[in-house]
């Protein structure tokens, strides 16, 4: 049976419609609280450091996943990075075409071994390149809520 094959004729075949009525309220956690507060209050991006594994986690974690040490050391990793990879999104989650295509990128931040997934702005899709240097553009402080969207997007440097 192929993926697209459907029962279209049987009058007896019943489908039962319902939903799962849940929503989720996530705490950002111990490390997340520090990370997002720094963005909200100071407009800086923080990473957490494991000195023994010589790693700087971004997004920061409260522990090192390699040695399971609790991480106490935090550093500012700057707001600049490079485009590690990207995609241009043309349809919404519902499958509708987007008026303005979105450019989503994985941005490697210098000084951290991880990176952030975020939007690219102030650039045309055809001008984006892997390896392109970019920097974070923050929302005005007043409008920040302690979320990843307090960074509006990354723009070419």
């Amino acid at each position: 049976m192929s993926l697209v094959e459907r029962i279209t004729t049987s009058a007896d075949a019943k489908v039962w419609y319902d939903n799962i009525p849940i929503e989720s309220l996530y705490t950002v956690g111990i490390a997340g609280e520090k990370f997002f507060r720094a963005i909200k209050d100071r407009g800086v991006i923080m990473g957490s450091v494991c000195p023994s594994c010589n790693l700087t986690y971004l997004p920061p974690m409260m522990y090192c996943e390699r040695c399971l040490a609790e991480l106490e050391e935090w550093v500012e990793v700057g707001t600049k990075g490079t485009v590690h990879t990207y995609t241009v999104v043309g349809v919404s989650l519902e499958g509708e075409p987007l008026e303005q295509p979105e450019i989503l990128a994985l941005i490697k931040v210098e000084g951290a071994h991880g990176g952030l997934v975020h939007r690219l702005g102030e650039v045309k899709p055809e001008d984006v390149e892997i390896g392109m240097p970019v920097e974070a553009v923050f929302k005005p402080k007043k409008g920040r809520e302690g979320s990843i969207l307090d960074i509006e997007h990354f723009k070419p440097v």
Binding site: T27, V28, G29, I30, G32, M62, Y63, L68, E70
Partner: peptide, 11 residues
């Protein structure tokens, strides 16, 4: 309710 995320609790 814990402030820790699930993975932080697991850690």
């Amino acid at each position: 309710r814990a402030q820790e995320t699930g993975r932080e609790l697991a850690f």
